[in-house]
Computed example of a mutant assay.
Amino acid sequence: MTSEAQTCITSAVVPDELRLNVLPRYLGRHYLTGESYVYDWAARLCRSYQGGLWHFFTLSNGGFYMAPADSGRVHVRWHLNGYSDMMGADAFGVTVTLFALCHLSEKTLDDSVIERYHQLREFASQHTEAANILRAID
């Protein structure tokens, strides 16, 4: 194994009783804005999005993301880069959280939010639907 080999980043769902601490821990004082951005981006990227329960995930590299609890596939479309395709709920969650973190980092210029974006982007590149996620955020 070379030093350039990529370390496998794992995700773990946050138990319901620990959910309240997730966003303040990862987004600090921006947690309410960050959460609203996730739901807003979900609606922007998926016309059929109607809200619902979301799971929170922590990443072994220190990052996090949110994903809809519904495990179905959704149609995702982003007109600014021409992306239009189906993806699973977990990949959709990663995609939406990346858009939200990018938006939040532009608004706040907070280094910790920028770090969260890069941690999730690193995980996204290893996701089973990496090609789809990366095309959507390009």
Results as ranks from 00 to 15, higher is better:
Y117D: 12
Y26G: 00
C102M: 05
E115D: 14
H30D: 12
R77K: 12
V38K: 08
G51M: 06
F64C: 08
R25Q: 13
F123Y: 15
R29H: 13
A130D: 13
Q126P: 05
G88N: 10
F56P: 06
S60F: 04
F57G: 00
H30K: 04
S112F: 15
P15Q: 07
L27P: 10
I9M: 09
S125T: 04
R116T: 11
Y83A: 07
D16P: 03
K107E: 14
C46G: 03
S71K: 05
V13R: 13
W54V: 07
G51K: 03
E35T: 05
H103A: 15
L20N: 08
G63Y: 00
L32G: 02
M87A: 06
N21G: 15
L53F: 07
R25L: 11
R29A: 09
L27K: 07
A43K: 14
R29E: 12
L80V: 15
G51Q: 09
V76H: 02
E106R: 12
V94L: 09
P24G: 05
F64N: 02
C46M: 12
F92W: 14
L27C: 13
R47T: 07
A43C: 04
R116N: 11
G51S: 03
T7M: 14
L109H: 10
W41C: 00
A69Y: 06
L18D: 12
Y65T: 00
G28S: 05
A42R: 04
S71Y: 00
G52N: 09
T95R: 03
M86V: 13
N21I: 13
G51Y: 07
P15L: 03
G62L: 08
R121S: 10
D40A: 02
D16K: 08
S105M: 15
A124P: 05
R73F: 02
L53N: 07
A69Q: 15
L120H: 11
V94D: 08
R19Y: 05
I114H: 11
C46P: 01
E122S: 15
D70V: 09
D85G: 01
W54H: 01
K107I: 12
T10M: 13
E122K: 07
V22H: 09
T7N: 15
R19Q: 12
G34D: 10
A43W: 10
V74K: 13
G82L: 01
Y49T: 03
F123W: 08
D110E: 11
L98R: 07
G82N: 11
L109Q: 14
A67N: 01
S71C: 09
R121N: 13
N81D: 00
A100C: 11
L80S: 12
F123C: 03
L18K: 14
F64S: 06
A91I: 15
T7I: 08
Y26T: 00
V94C: 10
E115Q: 14
R44V: 00
Y117I: 05
Y83P: 10
Q119I: 04
A67M: 00
H75Y: 07
Y49H: 11
T97N: 06
A43H: 13
T58D: 06
S105F: 08
Q50T: 05
L53P: 02
A100T: 07
Y26P: 02
K107G: 02
Y49I: 08
G52M: 01
R116H: 01
D85M: 09
S71L: 05
A69D: 14
Y31P: 08
H30R: 03
V74A: 08
R29S: 12
